[in-house]
Amino acid sequence: MSKILVIAEHLGGKLNPSTARAVSAAAAAKPEAIDVLVLADNADAIAAEAAKIEGVSRVLTVTRAENAHALAAVLAPQVAKAAAGYSHVFAPSTTFGKDLAPRVAALLGVAQVSDVMAVEGSHTFKRPIYAGNAIVTVEADPAQTVVATIRTASWPAAAIGANGTPVEALNLDVALPSYTRFVELKQGKSDRPDLQGASKVVSGGRGVGSKENFEIIYKFADRIGAAVGASRAAVDAGYVPNEMQVGQTGKIIAPELYMAIGISGAIQHLTGIKDAGTIVAINKDAEAPIFEIADLGLVGDLFKIVPELEAALAG
């Protein structure tokens, strides 16, 4: 039988929702136990949040000052040690998990399955390659620990509301390297919904034209309570910061409503939105590839259309 260890992602003392999505993927493998591992300098509040995720058997905490920041070189030896006795180690396929999991796999001397989008059996998974233009079925060696990252857009967050899940402190006797040090994190300040978990996302592309013009996107997003994203072109041009990029090398998202405004729809961008419920495209070029996958398309000048949308909403 399988036992799965899910690595909790957290920042600023709060559990990241990607953790509950990784728990969903773990549950799909029908294991006898799903334990969540919290590595932090102060794990209590995070562990309490993790304990509320339905389907979690136990929450394990490792509290060390070195765990104040998520440095893969520091966390990996602890995860590798904690992995003893588990058949699987799962982490969300966010920049946190992508950074950490392969380091864990290499310490264990095992392969990693990246971006799991479906669990077909305890050791059989589906994952995308070529920017999602092909889906492969891979079989992991049952004689080895399976290390996998979970493509969060493919999985709903496991329900919150569990009671009485035990929280246990682990004492791992592991020497940690000091050759990597955290300096700073520059975070965009935003009261808008989180791009990766939002049910509605409005994205702007090169067609928006400038940093100043992007205000029209923010304003409309705020009007409908949406998160704001962007194409690579808009990020490269400096209209918006990197954390807003949606696509193959940015964030892969699955909102119920995705509105692409002034985005032509390069393959790499479409990869990031394929799982969205309804895709709306607004572009002045009727031939733009975004219209090939959009559920609803509107051809025209975004600077005319977006104010009209707001007016129609008010009406």
Partner: peptide
């Protein structure tokens, strides 16, 4: 090389949707 790839498939296709005529119809 511990992973065995047993099958390749094309991703599910999103079908082409419909075009609307203006902002009011979209909303």
């Amino acid at each position: 090389d511990h992973l065995k790839t047993t099958h390749y498939a094309a991703p599910p296709k999103r079908s082409k949707g419909v075009m609307v005529k203006d902002a009011a119809e979209l909303v």
